[in-house]
Write a protein that binds this DNA or RNA. Structure first.
Lengths: 322, 322
DNA sequence: CGGCCGTTTGAGCCACATCAACCGGGGTGG
DNA sequence: CCACCCCGGTTGATGTGGCTCAAACGGCCG
């Protein structure tokens, strides 16, 4: 599959080359295989186009914001999680992607910034490109519960979008790049391209599935299993499409973990040490390493199927090689 | 609005009369008002038709099952919650309802019966007509967590339907009547009537919103607040469309409540007594009476907005009288 | 009449909360 | 350049909400 080739690291030249190779190869085939190759070429070309658009619009804006906040300017962002999600998980064709993305505006956010405030009505549709984001509810007594965590590629408010409002705030864990699609434009796209509406519905359902899983551990599991389970989930969602990797950036503080797991900061700390002493994970200065994945999965009773989407759409044919 | 008139208690003759009155009245009006009246007439006629269909197919089947299980045969079922949901919450036009419902098969279930088993793939789409239903996950150690409770009018698997599978089982609390719509037929309807797909998406989002709320109390609230909140939610969802009523059938056992709230049976019992002694609610032999609604809302920090749907669709015009 | 299911009550215990103090690093201001 | 501080992590002491185990009770059904 396309994204297996880690397109992110290729120069535009290489990508163009890859695309034309595929077109050429397609000439000598026919039927299903031909369509598949042409589709890949199209996807590559679109990726190129999108990347350069992104570099033009997002990067310089990033520069401004970074200066203001005195942060390092992120170099070119890795767009593959986003595109991976769009094509595989949402099952959108290249055409659909081409219809959807150009209506978006890119928006850079700094660490801890609020994107949508609790109680706000009708925001634009939001799609996370890079960084990590949370949805939170703050209670009267000041305590917080984080109800979702979003990783690159995730839509931030697919559910709120149909309901027309939301009672949670959405804010960033880290600096982040968000694509914002105006509500009116998206609603027009729904008329023309039912696949897009279906994709959003599916995303809403997937998020509900994740929340269901959280409810289960919140209700029935011990602190250690909860933490382990959450780490499993994040590790699994991060690796989507890429080969397994057992060490990565993990920017959440223990306090934030506590707000996810429904625990106190202190207890999170102690449980983290238990996991460490069992040689399951290592977590320090913003990096998480998984030392023993099977062991961790077991401690968490983690069954990743709830994160899966059954491929029922036409695109499952095109991406079946997966 | 239509359903305010408690159509359930009317004889077919009265309904037919009401419908023709509306048509007549419509003759003398025009524009928006005329459309509104005609629409109501249409809805009434459809209700009639649907009710007689239901009586033909469902009732005799109910008879059989009831004999087998030696239960009382339920007389004609109250269809208003279902139709109320379809038109108001889902925002479906009468045409859409007429397209959707006739593809359904009615299915009678007895108390405690399983409808969809954990891990099952691709069930038909299910819509609850009467009774109460739960979605459950059973863990390895035998403990259970109930992740959703469904009341008449609710779809049972709108989320699972797009995802193509589910990891929870769905089973009844009480005897229940479920409409089952074959997946293939529904998918065809999506093509022809985007409003139906949108309605399903919306339902998925609504369910996600409810689950979010559950996560919040599971994570951050005390047993008393959890229980109070759940009771508020059920009371609120039951009354949808009808005038406030503070006493109703509540068939859940304390053990089942425990599985919802993530508590032990024993503790549910004690907390229930606290609420009783505070004169907030009374719960015994399957009936719940709310003694002090404001007090209960306060104890639960209950804010019903998460159960609301913002009316953004065209049908909000037709039903705006609400 | 006996058995079963749901509810009720009591006793003891443990997981996790709360409070409080201390540590270490990175950024800030003087 | 150093002193400070603030934030995040770590550690200990102590309290408690809710669990578990166990037994008794009442209604319902066979």
């Amino acid at each position: 599959m396309l994204y297996r080739l880690s397109i992110q690291n290729r120069t535009p030249g290489e990508l163009r080359q890859l695309a034309s190779e595929r077109r050429e190869l397609a000439g000598s085939k026919d039927g299903h295989l031909k369509r598949l190759l042409l589709n890949e070429a199209k996807q590559l070309e679109f990726y190129l186009e999108f990347r350069s658009w992104m570099d033009r619009t997002a990067a310089h804006q990033a520069g401004e914001r970074a200066q203001a906040a005195r942060q390092a300017v992120p170099k070119s962002i890795d767009l593959s999680p986003l595109l991976e999600t769009l094509s595989h998980r949402m099952g959108l064709s290249v055409d659909d992607q081409q219809a959807l993305l150009p209506t978006a505006q890119a928006r850079w956010l700094t660490k801890g910034e609020m994107i949508v405030d609790q109680e706000e009505r009708s925001a634009p549709f939001l799609l996370l490109c890079s960084g990590a984001v949370r949805a939170t509810r703050t209670l009267e007594d000041g305590s917080q519960q984080i109800v979702s965590v979003f990783l690159p590629g995730d839509p931030l408010n697919s559910g709120d979008f149909v309901l027309g409002f939301s009672l949670t705030s959405i804010s960033t864990f880290t600096s982040a790049l968000v694509l914002s699609i105006p509500a009116a434009e998206l609603r027009m796209l729904f008329e023309q391209r039912p696949a897009i509406m279906r994709a959003m519905w599916r995303e809403t359902a997937l998020q509900a599935s994740i929340q269901r899983e959280w409810m289960i551990w919140l209700g029935r599991k011990t602190a250690e299993a909860r933490l382990a389970h959450f780490l499993c989930e994040v590790a699994y969602r991060m690796q989507a499409g890429k080969k397994e990797f057992d060490e990565f950036e993990f920017p959440l503080t223990q306090g934030e973990l506590a707000d996810i797991l429904g625990l106190s900061t202190v207890h999170v700390n102690r449980v983290l040490q238990q996991l460490r002493s069992k040689k399951l994970v290592e977590l320090s200065q913003g990096r998480l390493s998984i030392r023993n994945r099977p062991g961790l999965y077991e401690a968490a009773e983690f069954d990743p199927r709830y994160l899966e989407v059954a491929n029922t759409t036409q695109s499952s044919v095109a991406t079946g090689a997966r």
